[in-house]
Amino acid sequence: MSLFEQNFSVFLQGFGHTLLASIFALVGSLILGTIFAIMQVTNSRTARSIGNIYVQVFRNIPLLIITLFFYLAVAKVIKMTGFTAGTIALTLYTSAFIAESVRAGILSIEAGQMEGARANGLTFGQAMRVIILPQAFKVAIPSLGNQFINLVKNSSILAFVGGLDLMYQGNIVAANSFDTFTTYIIIGLFYLVITLPLSYYIQHLEHKLKKNA
């Protein structure tokens, strides 16, 4: 336990950065993901193509490559820290998965909802915002929750670019103390504090949805 006590402030700092990066990336990727999901279901062929390409590209390349791209290439033009580069990469990467979740949610809403709203005089945008999206998000909540868990876990990518997060601090403590085993267990527990309750809550939600269906 002394390892934990001695390095408590370091762990806490790491936990704070992990939480901060996760929340920034969550908000950013929810906005971006929703925009790209809507692009994929519009009538405009151009919008659909752009949405599709964006999602396919970011889903199919490693997060590490995106992170290195911002940290090594973009940061040369626009100054940014490892934390910022990693959080941007995390946002873009996650937004592709969120776009898929939201799109699936939108597609699960029966076509009559959109037709009814349009026949009722609402524009596409209004119908989307007031009628379709609220229902789609409800359907997508378990899948969005899983994306958030992935996001928290993936935030460990910051360790590759000096992002000051849990994983990064853990590596430093492990290297200094030589007690790698205990250090990584502690780091793991910190991650579980965020992800495990969330994961059980999602299972509970899915169970409830299944029962109501």
């Binding site: 868990i149 876990k153 993936n154 935030s155 460990s156 990518i157 360790a159 994983m167 853990g170 590596n171 492990a174 007690d179 790698t180 085993f181 250090t183 990584y184 780091i187 793991g188 991650y191 579980l192 992800t195 495990l196 994961s199 059980y200």
Partner: peptide, 23 residues
């Protein structure tokens, strides 16, 4: 299973390579 699923893979990789030798 839930515990493993909810940990970062990077941590599991580091743990396997750097911490298991301690055992």
């Amino acid at each position: 299973n839930n515990i493993v699923r909810n940990l970062p893979l990077l941590l599991i990789i580091f743990f396997t390579y750097f911490a298991l030798p301690q055992l």
